[in-house]
Amino acid sequence: MKPLIDVWLVFERYLGLLLRNPAWLATALVQPILYLVLFAPLLKSLASLRGFPPGGAYNVFVPGLLVQLGLFGSASVGFSLIAELRLGVVERMRVTPVSRLALLLGRALRDVLNLVVQALIITLIAIPFGLRIHPLGLVMMLGLVALIGLLFASLSYTVALWLRNEDSFAAVVFTSALPLLLLSGVLLPLTLAPAWLQNVARANPLAYAVNAARAVFLGHLTQASVVQGVSIMGALALAALVLAARSVSRALA
């Protein structure tokens, strides 16, 4: 009971911090909307090419955009932890009997909720552009975004605790997130890529998430690619959470 209350307390604190910052939604949504307005139309002319996945430009692009949001939106959460470590905010919490795991889980839950809400808003905005969605597919998509968010938020907190310095944290996070993104087929479908690039992308777990995301938007909820993408993200998210919990209990004992 006590650990659950602690998770709730921490979650509520960080959610409040987010909601009281009037700029959060605007800054979070400006980029995806720019992509929708300024980039997605380019795909329309590509949609007739051989190798372009079915479903039309927006049904190919929006799922990728949501996966990108899941990656970049959560990979940077470690910045705030580093700032709090330096300000003594974390020590001040550690000196209380609060559950150490709650300090991680409460934050990560807030991050996941934040992503899911943003993903929902982007999806709704994309409908007038020509996005078609299957209602159950949307629910599964949001679940997938939550798993991606949990995965990268956990990794982000782990790296933040390890480096404890904004500059080296930024270097590590962005140099590792960019290749993940480019090799995931988010911007352009990998079916258009040369064979060697497709082979490299096969090692990128995020590429499976993107495939799964496109399939669920088309309502193919039980396709093999969906099962594959969801289980890969689920397993990795769990592993990353365990890793983060271990580094929290070591670094913030």
């Binding site: 307390l9 300000l87 001040r92 000196v95 209380t96 009997p97």
Partner: peptide, 29 residues
């Protein structure tokens, strides 16, 4: 931890939060 209080060299309040909220949160912890 239950019996002591600690005020670190760098403080520990978050600059974005009001003093009252910080005190309520700390009491809840």
């Amino acid at each position: 931890r239950e019996r002591i209080g600690y005020v670190g060299q760098t403080g520990g309040a978050d600059l974005q939060v009001t003093g009252r909220r910080e005190l309520v949160f700390q009491s809840c912890l």
